[in-house]
Simulated scan of single mutants.
Amino acid sequence: MSLTTRSFIARPTATGYTGVYVSFDGMPASKLPLLITAFQYRFGRDLEAMTRHLVDDVAIGWEELGSDLLDGAPPGIVAALTGGDAWPSRTLDNLMTLDGSPPTRMTVTESTVANMDVEWGYVLRPSGVEVFPTNYAVAGPVVSWDADPLTDFGNPASWPTVTPARSRAPSTASPLPARPGTSRTTARL
């Protein structure tokens, strides 16, 4: 698991989603427990407050989402998710442009994701977190907000999912064929 796996966190829109870039540790095995725990405890199941904090109130993007998102969670969950370490969430405030102009927000949408250097996307939906690899133009599972944050999210077969009551907006990303000898689902997860 690479800590440099890039991802994005987004809110749903009428055409798909809009969100911000996250530089480090974007794999579902780390992002899903963090997001589910943050929703259940730090944000007290207030999806709008969580979305404002993670998506709307970020000027440029996130360098890293930290253990501060676990505030209010039971100590056993925090210890299991962090190994006892603590680190702050950090935004990308230290960027410099070649011409000296201020950096711009690193917005990711269904129209721009194909041109962004991200591997995973997390859309914060009312029913749960939609998670999908961005190199496929298919909707991913929506992992319920009621999921146990200690679920093995490194094993997609164990994800507690819900069926969203929505239609997927068309993506501009090109679907990649499955690797020989694997099913389409296995190849994309």
Rank of each mutant, 00 (worst) to 15 (best):
Val118Tyr: 05
Ala139Tyr: 02
Glu110Val: 11
Val138Ser: 13
Val143Asp: 09
Trp145Cys: 06
Val113Leu: 08
Gly140Val: 00
Pro141Leu: 05
Glu130Ala: 02
Ser111Cys: 11
Trp145Gly: 06
Thr109Asn: 05
Asp117Thr: 06
Glu119Arg: 14
Thr134Asn: 08
Asn115Arg: 12
Phe132Asp: 04
Leu124Arg: 00
Gly128Val: 03
Thr134Asp: 02
Pro141Asn: 12
Glu119Val: 06
Pro133Thr: 10
Thr134Glu: 03
Phe132Gly: 04
Thr109Gly: 10
Val129Pro: 04
Tyr136Lys: 10
Gly121Ala: 05
Pro133Lys: 13
Val131Thr: 13
Ala139Glu: 08
Pro133Asp: 07
Ser127Ile: 08
Phe132Glu: 02
Ser127Asp: 15
Ser144Trp: 05
Val138Gly: 11
Val113Ile: 13
Ala137Lys: 05
Val113Arg: 10
Ser127Met: 11
Val138Tyr: 14
Glu110His: 15
Pro141Gly: 14
Glu110Tyr: 10
Val131Ser: 14
Val143Lys: 06
Glu119His: 12
Val131Tyr: 09
Phe132Ser: 09
Met116Ala: 15
Phe132Leu: 07
Val113Asp: 05
Tyr136Asn: 12
Tyr136Ala: 11
Thr112Ile: 12
Glu119Asp: 09
Val113Glu: 10
Met116Pro: 07
Leu124Phe: 02
Ser127Gly: 15
Met116Thr: 11
Asn135Arg: 15
Val143Ser: 10
Phe132Tyr: 05
Glu130Ile: 01
Val113Met: 13
Val123Met: 02
Leu124Met: 01
Tyr136Trp: 13
Val138Asn: 12
Gly121Pro: 05
Thr112Met: 14
Met116Asn: 12
Ala139Met: 09
Asn115Ile: 05
Gly128Pro: 04
Gly140Arg: 00
Val143Gly: 08
Tyr136Thr: 07
Ala139Cys: 09
Pro126Met: 07
Glu110Ala: 15
Ser111His: 14
Ala114Trp: 00
Thr112Cys: 12
Trp120Glu: 02
Asn135Tyr: 12
Asn115Leu: 11
Ser111Phe: 13
Trp145Ala: 03
Gly140Phe: 00
